[in-house]
Design a protein around this nucleic acid. Structure first.
Length: 502
RNA sequence: GCUCCCUUCGUCUAGUGGCCUAGGACACCGGCCUCUCACGCCGGCGACAGGGGUUCGAGUCCCCUAGGGAGCGCCA
């Protein structure tokens, strides 16, 4: 009994707060959000904190923060890290209790008094004998009244689901198509732990049904859970969502993403300076292909073309170069204000924001944005273009020496002879005329004179890369151009003097 | 061990029996754009894991092999 089409779509993301979000989780969240948005439906957030040992309040807060940062707003869900009875499974006992009772009453589940030690031994034996490690059903035939008495006497017990024998469970996977599983390959599984908390299989499936979830996109590792959850939901008389299983996401080396491997955690990527839109664009194409690729797009456009049927079945590898390409593409389309906000959010980038005069900001962004990838890239140009002290680095001095002081004199003269309103080309045209230099012999020394300035954190010669000289030129006032040329001439004369002395 | 899943250029992928001498994007290499880097444009390199079938015809269907993965928990 699975949900059918033609009703409003409702998806969810249901993380357990036992670690930070990484690329893999984030993709799952994104896909569910895109699916909901695509259909004009709703996207919910639920916290699966039934593991008392490992769930941590601060992870909830971090989770919410990461999702908000990514731009994945949820239509319904927790508003903060404080557990509430609606969205935190640890507080939803009241919803579960009647279902346990029903399971017990119909015989669909039974009390199991097996100790963990016995189960461990059992699994070990089964494995050694080359058999699948499954519960052997020791408590399945216990007399119900006896079991209740032992329970009442305080003997610890789990509630175990009785998987019907010799049946086939069929379902249609949203991404993998028709699936069929023999119930004889399934062992009786735990529904409620001895400490009274619900087991994942139970709480997860039940909450999806109770919350009216219609579609669930989740990791492939849940594929074999699906028949169990279907059986369970049928036994409590709830309607199951449709499930779709996403291929695993692996790192650049082809290894599964791990919570311990921190470099692909969302907060690490954010600290590095990646934009949420870059991440979303990257993720939206890992294991999913657009029929018509929208290019660097916002969530709305990403959602428009999103289609679960176009999700792949093979593991997808995260290629950092691809992510960087999205970062560049997204950055390229950001307006100056957004670039400013991005930079202001990072310690490094803030230095750039502070250095560049507000009025010059749009021009600065226009000139430099093609050369940005991370916040620190902006700092060097901000410090170079709006430098107070002017000192040339070794490569610049080489270029000045090679060009000769006469050349610089000519450049300065051409500049002072320039009528107001004349542009970069007028200037370089005149310099070319006076000195007979063209191409790199003309531009290289001019670039050295105007931008070959030492900047903290930049490697020597950094200025030789970067935006077109002409764009930078228009960023400077005439006085600043004079100042730079004058400094270059002084440096050149100093070099000459040094040479004469030796 | 058992059950299930997966396998197209370096990477993400298109491809649902003829439109495929396998297309695109990113990466890489080369060229152009009056200096460099980037952008843009043009071009290049580059793949159907292997073997058997089925078919007039297979990347597409079936089987086997190899390789990878998941599940089999009082973890989610």
């Amino acid at each position: 009994m699975q949900k059918q089409d033609r009703e409003p779509i409702r998806t969810r993301f249901a993380p357990s707060p036992t670690g930070r979000l990484h690329l893999g989780n984030a993709r799952t969240a994104l896909f569910n959000a895109l699916l909901a948005r695509h259909a004009g439906g709703e996207f919910l957030l639920r916290i699966e904190d039934t593991d008392r040992e490992r769930s941590r309040r601060e992870y909830v807060a971090a989770l919410l923060e990461d999702l908000r940062w990514l731009g994945l707003a949820w239509d319904h869900g927790p508003s903060g890290a404080e557990p509430d009875p609606d969205w935190f499974q640890s507080r939803r006992e009241a919803h579960y209790a009647p279902l346990y009772a029903r399971l017990l009453a119909t015989g669909a589940a039974y009390w199991c008094f097996c100790t963990e030690a016995r189960l461990a031994r059992l699994r070990q034996r089964q494995r050694a004998a080359g058999r699948p490690p499954r519960y052997d059903g020791a408590c399945a035939r216990l007399d119900a009244a006896d079991a209740e008495r032992r329970r009442a006497a305080g003997e610890p017990a789990v509630l175990r689901f009785r998987v019907p024998a010799g049946r086939r469970v069929r379902f249609e996977d949203l991404v993998r198509g028709p699936q069929e599983v023999d119930t004889d390959t399934l062992g009786d599984f735990v529904v409620r732990r001895a400490d009274g908390t619900p087991a994942f299989l139970f709480a997860n499936a039940v909450d999806d049904a109770l919350m009216g979830i219609t579609h669930v996109l989740r990791g492939e590792d849940h594929l074999s859970n699906t028949p169990r959850q279907l059986l369970l939901l049928a036994a409590v008389g709830l309607e199951a969502p449709r499930y779709g299983h996403l291929p695993l996401l692996v790192d650049a080396a082809g290894r599964p993403l791990s919570k311990r491997l921190g470099s692909l955690s969302l907060d690490a990527l954010r600290a590095r300076g990646y934009l949420p839109a870059a991440l979303c664009n990257h993720l939206a194409r890992l294991g999913h292909a657009y029929a018509e690729d929208p290019g660097p797009a916002d969530l709305e456009a990403l959602a428009r073309g999103f289609d679960p049927a176009r999700i792949g079945r093979a593991p997808a590898r995260h290629d950092p170069a691809r992510l960087d390409a999205w970062q560049k593409a997204v950055l390229e389309r950001l307006d100056p204000g957004a670039v400013r906000a991005w930079l202001a959010g990072h310690p490094e980038g803030r230095r750039a924001v502070e250095r560049v005069p507000r009025a010059r900001w749009p021009d600065f962004v226009a000139a430099v944005r093609g050369n940005l990838r991370f916040p620190e890239d902006a700092v060097r140009w901000a410090e170079n273009l709006f430098a107070e002290a002017i000192a040339y680095d070794a490569y610049a001095l080489d270029a000045l020496r090679a060009a000769g002081c006469d050349f610089l004199d000519a450049a300065a003269e051409a500049l002072s002879a320039l009528p107001p309103g004349a542009g970069f080309r007028d200037w370089t045209g005149r310099v070319a005329e006076r000195t007979g230099r063209r191409g790199r012999w003309l531009f290289q020394p001019l670039r050295a004179a105007l931008t070959g300035i030492q900047v903290s954190g930049a490697s020597p010669g950094y200025w030789r890369q970067g935006p077109e000289l002409g764009r930078l030129w228009s960023l400077w006032e005439r006085g600043e151009l004079d100042r730079r040329l004058e400094a270059a001439r002084a440096a050149c004369r100093h070099l000459d003097a040094m040479r004469e002395r030796t």
